[in-house]
């Protein structure tokens, strides 16, 4: 979506302490009929965030509606975040809400790739590191978390964790590259591949 790169981000956390958050929860189907990429943020976690279908009554028990977490830009979660449907509306809605980074124990494959393609940084930490982050944010909701992609670190107060990310993903996030533009530079190789296909495989 955006082409600007991401390197260092500092912000407050939203502690969504739950495993297996699927993309149907992140953005339910009734919002998938739109034909644009913008405007999904207000529907993010619709079923959990609102008590009514018209989004007029916030659910006071849901973490997104707690006063102390307003303005958060770093989402904390648990294992298998973004599982289920391939809908790229999930990262679009997280981005539109204002998240720049999602930190969790693990991510579903398609969702992870969709994050990379939308300049939303997915950071994978261990379960015990997540325990420490959740505990810290519980004791101090205003704590500022700094995520440094270049150095591959997450720092907040006394906590300092390193994380792994594939080189290809890191480069794309840092530089905000146009993935299609990069591939089109290999056009000769693609054409050569097509020319080498046996006749019956040619479309």
């Amino acid at each position: 979506m955006t082409t600007a790169g991401i390197n260092i981000h500092t912000g407050k956390a939203m502690p969504l302490n739950q495993a297996n958050v699927d993309t149907d929860q992140i953005i339910p189907k009734q919002f998938l009929t739109a034909v644009t990429k913008s405007g999904y943020g207000k529907h993010l976690f619709h079923d959990w965030r609102y008590l009514d279908q018209h989004e007029q009554v916030p659910n006071p028990d849901f973490v997104f509606n707690k006063t102390e977490h307003q303005g958060a830009s770093v989402l904390l979660t648990r294992e298998n975040f973004g599982c289920g449907s391939s809908r790229e509306h999930a990262p679009w809605s997280l981005d539109d809400y204002g998240f720049k980074v999602v930190i969790g124990t693990s991510f579903a494959d398609i969702f992870y790739g969709n994050c990379i393609n939308n300049q939303l940084l997915p950071v994978q930490l261990t379960s015990s590191q997540m325990d420490q982050l959740f505990a810290l944010v519980e004791s101090d909701a205003s704590a500022q978390i700094t995520v440094n992609l270049q150095d591959q670190t997450v720092k907040v107060k006394d906590l300092n964790f390193g994380f792994e990310i594939a080189e290809q993903h890191k480069t794309n996030l840092l530089k905000g590259l146009d993935a299609i533009g990069q591939t089109l530079e290999l056009d000769d190789k693609i054409t050569a591949f097509e020319n080498n296909l046996p006749q019956w495989q040619k479309a």
Partner: peptide, 10 residues
Amino acid sequence: FGIGTSQVEH
């Protein structure tokens, strides 16, 4: 395999 919309464009 399933892909996201950015990959559909790709």
